[in-house]
Design a protein around this nucleic acid. Structure first.
Lengths: 204, 204, 204, 204
DNA sequence: TATGAATGAGTGTTCATTCAT
DNA sequence: TATGAATGAACACTCATTCAT
């Protein structure tokens, strides 16, 4: 009796491989077509399997997305745990830069799911909550770090955090979606500097 | 003379009213459902007219979106024209704040269209170009203002502008889409302050 | 109280002109698009008038076709009256050739209607009858001429006549529809010769 | 793997049967309603299957027609290969009569497709070409036979061949479409005799 | 007499999901 | 465990016809 939805089946190695292939394919299609335009047909085509097989592993398309979302949420949560204190000095800047680098990596792996969340495309209330919790978790760590850094110039820390995370998400999205002429490293450096100055009290 | 839409059809006042009603309804549905999930059925339902009537005014759903997009683009372009010089002093901050206020207003009117652009949901190459041009126009004005303000601390102005505009768009999106507990004014004040500091060389 | 269907209205000169324009346009569209693909939209577009006006003169599309068909039937009937005796000599050949020339002229005027008949596209039983009667009228004149010419070598005159008329119709159709490299005159000469030999007992 | 039709789909026996049923039904509807009026609804109704199933085997209605057309073209081409020399004597007449019999059989199988071609209803340029090539193939064989028979009395062989083939097609059409009071055999005898005299130099 | 506007039934096509093998 | 086959509800779009002005 599994807690997760779907047929309560015990998967042997072949089954596990097939399911993994479907998830992998699902993520790819999601990235290329977007949440609303993702078709089971494309997923099974890319996973080189059949419609029938898809429904052997997922009760419906939503459940596949849910599976992808939970993995993404776990990875995002792990991200938050890694963010140490951020002082207004060069070391703090470096720490922020490292965090952004890890954020980008996570985004590269789970971008399609994260974007569906960020762009409010999901209908399932549970998934919406999951997204809000996940983002909220990161936001509160960021806010703690701001408090630790003794940042007092921000009249409303909650708003500031929203601004901060929104900025990060969107920028990393730009970095991953379009072929920018500048490389990711430069973009992250720039972003880290700006955020460091704007939110953590660093001066130029 | 013909039933098909296009420049050949001459609209009288009743026709103009119906078309306006359809556009209004289209914008609403777009906002609620998103670009991909906008159904003609919902649009005509909300405009209290029939399926057939829709196609009297638009060749297809895409064309309705195109009409909405062009209006939005015009309003956005007008926005850029209003942005004066932004000095690193309190006056500059105020100018930036005013601009953001106007940006929010525009967003409130055209948010669904702007979001479809910003979220890369549009397929039509012409519309993509229109979006890029429109955003690019605002970006280049912003950049000019930065140059005018003698901002030199930014290693890559192009990236910075993208960061800046992306941030604004996403934040204003949050402000308009979710019922935030804080009011718009506070959010804009915060945002103006942060951008003023982060981009236009203002100090606390 | 008119015997023809449609609104029993007395048309003044402007109305007559409009109706004529619609009929003319209807015939053109019929020729270009074919019976099944003829759209009211195209007809009124070509007649430079409106949908509403169309239904001022015809109760429905079928009625317009009926009007065209009756004119065509009259012209075809007149054709039959002109066919004199056809002897197996050069004079007979010439007479047949003249008849074919007149047939072609009529076809050029009413081709679209005639084709709709010949190709069995019409559903209205009355119109089908009209078509059969019209063709039958010509066929029986042709048969009379064969009898007059003392043609006895044909085992079944009814079949022969059908063959004969079918051949004529199809050939004239080719002549009018496709841009043949040879001119109409040559085609008719050839056809007249063949029919003269094949049906009227002429020798080479 | 995918649901969309095309070379990628591998059909098993059940699928092959269903496709055959659809083609059979398609031909029937085509024959009854004509090319322009053929509705998917009627086809699937007659094939006792569903709308969705149709699109499992054909991308659209046009493709189904294309499939039917290619089979017809093959059968027509085979027909041409069977036509031997036609002398002006009784043997030649018999050969021609046999050919017409085979033509009729083919027409009975593929009439609806052939008629759509002959009546210029098809829009797809490839299909038009296929039709012209197929008819042209038969025409050129007929012409060769005329040349072989030493026929010299025809001023323009190309026109004569067109006349000949057009006559055959239309007549066979009459034979198959309407319930004629005379039987097919008699019609073909008559036709063979007439063509033999008219084109291959036979005398009575 | 003319016309723009409106309508809704009809039709082609897509796609998530179920089923038999 | 896998898969091809089947389904039907949903959706975009067309077009003959009616109506108000």
């Amino acid at each position: 009796m599994a807690t997760t939805p779907g047929p309560a089946r015990v998967l042997r190695s072949q089954g596990l491989r097939t399911k993994a292939r479907l998830l992998e394919a699902g993520m790819q299609v999601l990235g290329e077509r977007g949440y609303r335009a993702t078709r089971v047909d494309d997923v099974v085509g890319r996973a080189a399997t059949s419609h029938g097989t898809f429904y052997l592993y997922f009760q419906n398309v939503g459940e596949m997305f849910r599976a992808l979302a939970h993995v993404a949420a776990d990875d995002m949560a792990a991200l938050a745990d890694e963010l140490g204190p951020i002082a207004p000095d060069a070391g703090g800047r470096k720490g922020l830069r490292t965090f952004l680098g890890r954020f980008l990596e996570t985004y590269e792996r789970h971008g399609p799911v994260i974007r569906a969340w960020a762009e409010n495309q999901v209908d399932d209330p549970d998934l919406i909550s999951l997204g809000l919790d996940t983002f909220g978790g990161i936001a509160s760590v960021l806010r703690e770090r701001m408090d630790d850094a003794g940042v007092t110039h921000l009249p409303d820390a909650a708003v500031a955090t929203t601004v901060l995370l929104g900025t990060i998400e969107r920028l990393v999205y730009y970095a991953t979606s379009r072929p920018l002429e500048l490389d990711d490293g430069a973009l992250l450096d720039e972003l880290a500097g700006m955020l460091h100055r704007g939110f953590f009290g660093a001066s130029r």
